[in-house]
C-alpha cells in the first residue's frame, strides 16, 4: 500500500514538499531579517545613495565613514563601555541574587514558599511604564540621577523574577541524590555549590544571563530619563540622540551604523553561547 502510494507520487513527478518548504523558509527569513539587512546596507552606503530617489537597494559604492564618524565625532566607544558596564553588572547581580534564591525556593522546606513565589510572579505583571514614574521619584529622592546605580538597580530588579523562575524550575529537575551524594563524599556547602551544582546549572545560568543582558542592553526609557550626563549615556540613548549638522538633517547613515554596532555584541554573545542556550531552554522539557 505504502509502496504503491510513493510510486504514484513519483510518477506524477511533483514533490510539493520539496517546493513549498524552501519558499516558506525563505519568506520567514526575509520577513525577519529584511529590516536588519536594510540597516546593514544603509550603514555602508554613501550619503548620496541613502537619499537618492529612486531608492538604491543594493549600493555599488561602499563606505565605512559612518562607522568612523561615530567614533570621531562622538565618544561611541565610551557609550559601548557604559552599556557593557551597566548590563554586565546587572546581569551578574541578577544571577548572584537570583540563583541562590531560586535554589532555596526549589529545595528547602520554607514556610510561605508559595506566597513568595506568587509575589515574585506578580512583580513581572507590572508594565515597566507604570513603575517608571515611581522610580523617577525614588531616583530624585535618593539623588541617584546621573549615577549608574539608577540603571543597574532597576534593571536587576526587573529581571530578577525571570531569573528566579527559570532557575527554580531548573533546580527542581536536578536530582536531589546528587547533592546527597556530594555531602556523603565530603563536599561542604560551598564546595558543593561550586564544584557540583554550578557546572550543572551553567546552561541555565547562561540562558537567563543572556536574557537579562539583552534586556539591560536594549533598555531605553530609564537610561534616557535617569542619565543626562553626556559621557554616561548608553548605546540606545546615544543612537536615538544622534543628530545631523542642522535640525532638518537626519543622519541615517550614522544611525544605521550605531544600530549595527549596538546589536553586534548581542549577536556575538548569542552565537557564542548558542549551544548552552539551547540546552538551557530544553533542560526542563527533556529528561536527561
Amino acid at each position: 500500500m505504502a509502496i504503491a502510494q510513493s510510486r504514484s507520487q513519483s510518477k506524477s513527478g511533483v514533490n510539493w514538499r520539496a517546493i513549498w518548504l524552501p519558499i516558506a523558509v525563505a519568506l520567514v527569513v526575509i520577513f525577519f531579517l529584511a529590516p536588519v539587512l536594510w540597516q546593514v546596507l544603509t550603514s555602508v552606503k554613501v550619503n548620496e545613495d541613502i537619499s537618492a530617489v529612486p531608492t538604491v537597494y543594493f549600493p555599488t559604492r561602499y563606505t565605512l565613514a559612518h562607522y568612523a564618524s561615530l567614533f570621531t565625532r562622538r565618544p561611541f566607544g565610551l557609550y559601548i563601555l557604559n552599556s557593557a558596564f551597566v548590563s554586565i553588572t546587572s546581569t551578574l547581580l541578577c544571577l548572584t541574587l537570583g540563583a541562590p534564591a531560586a535554589y532555596v525556593l526549589a529545595r528547602l522546606r520554607l514556610v510561605g514558599k508559595e506566597v513568595i513565589l506568587a509575589i515574585v510572579l506578580i512583580v513581572t505583571l507590572f508594565p515597566t511604564v507604570l513603575l517608571f514614574l515611581g522610580l523617577l521619584e525614588i531616583v530624585q529622592a535618593t539623588n541617584l540621577a546621573n549615577n549608574f546605580l539608577a540603571l543597574i538597580v532597576p534593571y536587576t530588579a526587573i529581571n530578577l523574577p525571570l531569573t528566579i523562575l527559570v532557575m527554580r524550575s531548573f533546580f527542581q529537575q536536578l536530582p536531589k541524590d546528587l547533592e546527597d551524594s556530594a555531602r556523603v563524599d565530603g563536599y561542604n556547602t560551598v564546595q558543593m555549590l561550586w564544584q557540583i551544582l554550578l557546572p550543572m546549572t551553567l546552561p541555565a545560568l547562561v540562558t537567563t544571563g543572556i536574557l537579562t543582558f539583552i534586556a539591560a542592553w536594549n533598555e531605553f526609557i530609564f537610561a534616557l530619563t535617569f542619565i543626562s550626563q553626556e559621557n554616561m549615556k548608553t548605546i540606545p540613548v546615544a543612537t536615538a540622540q544622534l543628530s545631523g549638522a542642522s535640525v532638518f538633517e537626519i543622519p541615517y547613515g550614522p544611525i544605521a551604523a550605531a544600530t549595527i554596532l549596538g546589536t553586534l555584541p548581542l549577536i556575538l554573545l548569542v552565537l557564542f553561547f548558542q549551544r548552552k542556550i539551547v540546552q538551557g531552554l530544553t533542560a526542563g522539557a527533556v529528561k536527561g
Binding site: 546527597d180 556523603v184 561542604n188 550543572m200
Partner: peptide, 19 residues
Amino acid sequence: RPGDRNMAMVFQSYALYPH
C-alpha cells in the same frame, strides 16, 4: 556531618556527577 563520617554510599539513581 555526612562528610566527616567516612561512609560511602551508593544511591538508587547512582547520583554520578554528570559533568
